[in-house]
Nucleic acid binder design. Structure first.
Lengths: 204, 204
DNA sequence: ACTAAGATAGTAGCAAATTACTTATCTGGT
DNA sequence: ACCAGATAAGTAATTTGCTACTATCTTAGT
């Protein structure tokens, strides 16, 4: 039992990573706003006060979480897009990569589309806004490329289509949030994407 | 100055209505979760404790708010749909009626799509779920009618299209939430709806 | 005069942050 | 290899501040 009482001490860097990890888990379970530092501490067998050895404020934790998400998500999307031979395929691959990412980390959309967005003047809001508008710009950019290759009509409004793209993801997330877990998130995603695709494709 | 100190006393019914009204306003400004009963009281020149003369718990206030929203929204949507001559037009009219409703009451989507959804086992969650899934069912129903009249392809998945419809609204809301107010919510809505429409319309 | 809305002044509980103290782990000099 | 001292992670207890809710008293309106 001595072994059990031996507390492993982690470096601040490692501990920060763990805090980020459990925060995401907890946010998935009970919603971002109701995760307390006590919850975090409990989840990693630590005392509540210890959290503040590694982050000055709780807000800083969420900032770190969002930055972690941004990094991971962008990596996944870039990788998906890089395997495409044309802009339309890139959009499709990105979409399904995003859906897969969400399936694996159900908390992510909850973070990005949560009330965190509404805390005015916060760094968090700026971060989230940056991610979403950057994403939108990326999709719109690909659509412009598609236009140049006449894969979509020249009069298509790229920005509007990008907004619809984002909304499509939000809709799917809400769908799966209301009607049981990821029941058929992938399947639903495929069907919806076909409609989207048909909506923007070149009229034959 | 005597006039100023004269406090008007409202009946509990009237006061409840006012509480609902200011709650929606405040939720639009600072987010549902951070509205306190003190905020509400301040907004109507009342003491915090007085709130509880009219609602037993704070949750009851949000329940009343959601029911108010449901009633109003449904009325707006039904009225819009009733003016249509065919199912597709009904969907279009409903969509723009919804967008107009949101423009007038920016807090509404914030309530429906907020973290309230994540409070498991609550009456609130059930209410919100009911509204959204009912809405979705309505759209899907109209699409089925459209199918019967060959206005949309028979192989269209109505439910998926309905999810996309909801997502479209969410996307627009997020868009206007991030990039300044209702700058061009109406205009954006029109452009996006065209894409959606083309996506579900019968291939010619 | 009676009823019920409102005021006043609380209470209990929770959550973020801080303080003083403890001890594991790392470091450099012998 | 070793050990003394510095460093920093962890603990425990507490503070501070807020928030939902309540008990008691007051007074407007009928």
């Amino acid at each position: 039992m001595n072994q059990k009482t031996v507390k492993k001490r982690l470096s601040s860097e490692e501990r920060q990573s763990e805090i980020i990890r459990v925060s995401i888990e907890l946010a998935a379970e009970k919603g971002v706003d109701s995760v307390t530092t006590q919850d975090m501490a409990d989840a990693m067998n630590l005392t509540q006060g210890s959290i503040f050895r590694h982050f000055a404020t709780k807000d800083d934790i969420w900032v770190a979480v969002i930055m972690w998400v941004r990094e991971r998500l962008m990596k996944v999307l870039d990788k998906a897009a890089s395997g495409a031979s044309d802009p339309m395929q890139a959009i499709e691959l990105m979409f399904f990569a995003h859906i897969a990412f969400i399936s694996k980390h159900p908390a992510i959309p909850r973070l990005l589309f949560s009330e965190l967005l509404h805390k005015k003047n916060s760094k968090l809001r700026q971060l989230i806004e940056g991610i979403i508008s950057g994403y939108e710009a990326k999709v719109a950019g690909l659509l412009e490329q598609a236009k140049a290759r006449s894969l979509v009509p020249a009069d298509l409004d790229s920005r509007s289509a990008a907004v619809l793209y984002i909304g499509m993801i939000q809709g799917l997330v809400m769908q799966s949030s209301i009607f049981g877990g990821k029941r058929a998130l992938q399947r639903e995603a495929e069907k919806i994407f076909q409609i989207f695709l048909h909506g923007i494709k070149k009229r034959s």
